[in-house]
Every structure is written in C-alpha cells, then in structure tokens.
Amino acid sequence: MLTDEQIERYSRHIILKEVGGKGQQKLFDGRVLIIGAGGLGAPIALYLAAAGVGTIGIADADDVDLSNLQRQVIHFTPDVGKPKVESARQKMEAINPDVKVHTYKEWISAANINRIIADYDFIIDGTDNFAAKFLINDACVLAGKPYSHGGILQFDGQTITVKPKESACYRCIFPEPPPKDAIPTCSQAGVIGVLPGIIGTLQATEAIKYLLGIGDPLTNRLLTYSALRMKFREIPIKRNASCPVCGDNPTITEAVDELDAMTVCDLKEP
C-alpha cells in the first residue's frame, strides 16, 4: 500500500492511465540490476530511483575519477576517489529514500554473474567493454533474464532489449567479440558527454516498461543514435539460427569469460 506521501511523490506517474496506483506498486515491487555505475549507469540509476523502482542493484569495482565527471552525472566533484557504487548509492537514496540499493563493488565475471543476476527481474548492461557485454548477454540468455544492452562510441550509440529465447540476443547480431583492442572501447576513443545520458535513459525506459508490463519492448530491433546527424534509426533484427547461445545448436551452454576480449584498459584494476 502506498502512503499519502508516496501518492504525492509519484502523482505524475499515478495519473497516467498506463501506470496508476497499481503500476506504481509494480515498480515498487520491481528489482532491477544495473551493471556499471558509469556513463550509462548514471542516468539509469538516477531515473530508476526517482521512479520508485523498489530494489536496485548496482555493480562496479571502480572508483570515481576526475575524468568521469564530464558524463557520469551521478558522481560529483567531492566524490573523486570514492567507490562508484557508494557514490551512486548516496545520490539514489537522496533522490528517493524509499528505494533499497544493493551495491556490488566487484567486476562481473563468469564466477559471480549468475549469483548476482539471480535476485533481479531485469538487468541493464551499462558496461564499457566487450568481455562484460558478451558475458551479460550469455548469462541473461541462459538464465532467462530479460535485459537491455547499450553501447556507445564517440558520437554514436545503440541499444536493444533481449527477451531470452523469444527475441534476438546480442550474439544473434555479433556472434563473437572483436579481438582485443580491435575496436576502441575506452579513454582513447572519447565520447561526447551527453551521449550516455540519451542511451542510458532509453535503457531505463525499457526497464520501467518491463516492470509495468506496458507498451512494446525494443526487441528484435536495434535502435541506433547518431548525435552528429541527430538521427535515430531502427534496424529490424531476427533471431539467428546459428547464434552460439540462443540458436538451434548452441555452443555456449554456460557463462564463460571471453578472455580474448579483455583489454588492458578493462583489467586496469583487479
């Protein structure tokens, strides 16, 4: 049951006929895991907390660095040096004390991902490396957890929602990670600061729609965004019968680390 204060806090949700008091309760009962407390994770964590998603997990082993502040809007100047998950938790609780925040100050790997995702209804990939992106896809597909993929590079971003075994997964599009260091993923490539705000907010929207059970998910279509051209495009994607994890003859039957895709940058901290 929502209290009077909660009815006021969420009044702009509750007056939406697609949400209402029942929908707000669904958000409150919802459990979403955000992997990565960086550029994508920042708006995702802020909006999900503000929306009243009852339980939010956030995983990241990194500490806040001065160079993060240009885009990771959940971290403030005095947070430099603090664990990102701690900095994020403080802002989320300040926006909305109703929300339970679980922090995981660890890099996800094959050794811990199944344990971490097990407690959540919906997972959001806000990571910055292919090893993690493929691992999240495989673990979510194998565990049947719906999730949102997001990726950004310089002025471009893309996102897709995956409903395991129902809709195309990340490996249906990209069967295997690119070789190590083949594609710029980290500091050397650069990223325009607003970009993760746009893609992350789309991902948060998908989580909220999923918890509410409304609208059409971003499944079987890859949404791409170019900030320079200010264009969104939607590319229809089908499940791929030769997908190594959700195809007809899968070769991936448990989550394993893609060691070849890990870069020096990804491994900068244990």
């Binding site: 990565g36 960086g38 550029g39 994508l40 994770g41 990194d62 993060n68 990771q72 990939d125 806000g126 990571t127 910055d128 490396n129 292919f130 992106k133 997001g150 990726g151 950004i152 590079l153 471009d156 971003g157 893309q158 249906c172 599009i173 990209f174 690119p178 594609i183 710029p184 993923t185 980290c186 490539a189 990223v191 993760p196 890859l222 590319i235 994607i237 089908k238 791929n240 030769s242």
Partner: peptide, 28 residues
C-alpha cells in the same frame, strides 16, 4: 545476419537491402 564465411560468395544485386552493424563497446 550473414555469416562472415559467406561474404566472398554472396553477390550484390539490384534492390538488395544491406545494413552494416558496428561494435560499440563503450558505456562508462
């Protein structure tokens, strides 16, 4: 989605619809 092995053997004809999908690995 076309298997990489099929790139050399797949002719391009009038009216074909082709999408190039790129890796984007960032997020932080």
């Amino acid at each position: 989605v076309l298997d990489r092995d099929a790139f050399t053997g797949t002719p391009v004809k009038e009216g074909d619809v082709i999408e190039f999908l790129y890796f984007m690995g960032g997020g932080h």
